[in-house]
Amino acid sequence: MNQTTWTRTLLGGLIIGAATVGAWWAWLGWETGYTVDPETGATSGPYAPWQVVGCVLTLALIAAVGGWLLSPWVVVPVMTVAFTVAWAAHAASTDDTGLWAVGAVLVLVGTAAGTSMVSAGAGLIRRRTRRSPG
């Protein structure tokens, strides 16, 4: 790997990591409360469905751009670790049950699977569009 490629990969990884943590913070990081339905007593939360959908769509966009510009071998581990660490640090600080660790594993697996599919798909589309004439 030459110096230009190394620098581009490092900077790209740092930007993707920062964007991933930013997505977590913008959509989920500020939420700490649970909602209790007064009629049924059912508890839900801490996230509303719209927050999760917004976060997933934002992460998909980051993974797609990252997969287009960089290798999925960079995008997947950076996004997976960045999002999981951000989520787990917050969850661990607000959970008294210890179940945050189970959630962290699920977040890790889900983030790895999602970023793998999206970034690899974007990279594949990029390679195919470069090969096509015209």
Score class of each variant (00 low, 15 high):
71 S>K: 00
97 T>Y: 07
63 A>M: 11
97 T>R: 07
17 G>P: 02
41 G>C: 09
97 T>Q: 08
125 I>W: 09
39 E>H: 12
132 S>M: 11
83 F>V: 08
113 A>K: 10
56 V>T: 10
114 G>F: 09
60 A>C: 15
23 A>P: 00
14 L>K: 05
64 A>L: 09
100 W>M: 04
108 L>Q: 01
85 V>E: 02
106 L>W: 10
103 G>V: 05
61 L>W: 00
129 T>Q: 13
114 G>Y: 07
133 P>W: 03
93 S>W: 05
21 V>L: 05
62 I>G: 03
83 F>G: 03
27 W>T: 02
69 L>W: 00
38 P>N: 09
94 T>E: 11
124 L>G: 06
31 E>R: 14
53 V>W: 09
40 T>R: 04
82 A>H: 04
18 A>C: 11
109 V>Y: 14
48 A>H: 14
39 E>S: 13
52 V>C: 07
24 W>T: 02
89 A>F: 09
79 M>C: 07
72 P>F: 01
121 G>S: 11
27 W>N: 01
23 A>R: 03
52 V>P: 00
78 V>W: 06
67 G>W: 00
102 V>N: 05
113 A>L: 14
24 W>A: 11
133 P>G: 14
50 W>G: 14
129 T>I: 12
32 T>Q: 12
55 C>L: 08
18 A>I: 12
97 T>L: 06
40 T>A: 09
109 V>H: 15
119 S>W: 07
97 T>M: 11
35 T>G: 06
38 P>A: 11
69 L>C: 10
109 V>M: 14
14 L>M: 13
63 A>K: 05
118 V>F: 01
112 A>T: 13
31 E>H: 10
12 G>W: 03
26 A>C: 13
61 L>M: 12
33 G>R: 15
56 V>W: 12
37 D>I: 06
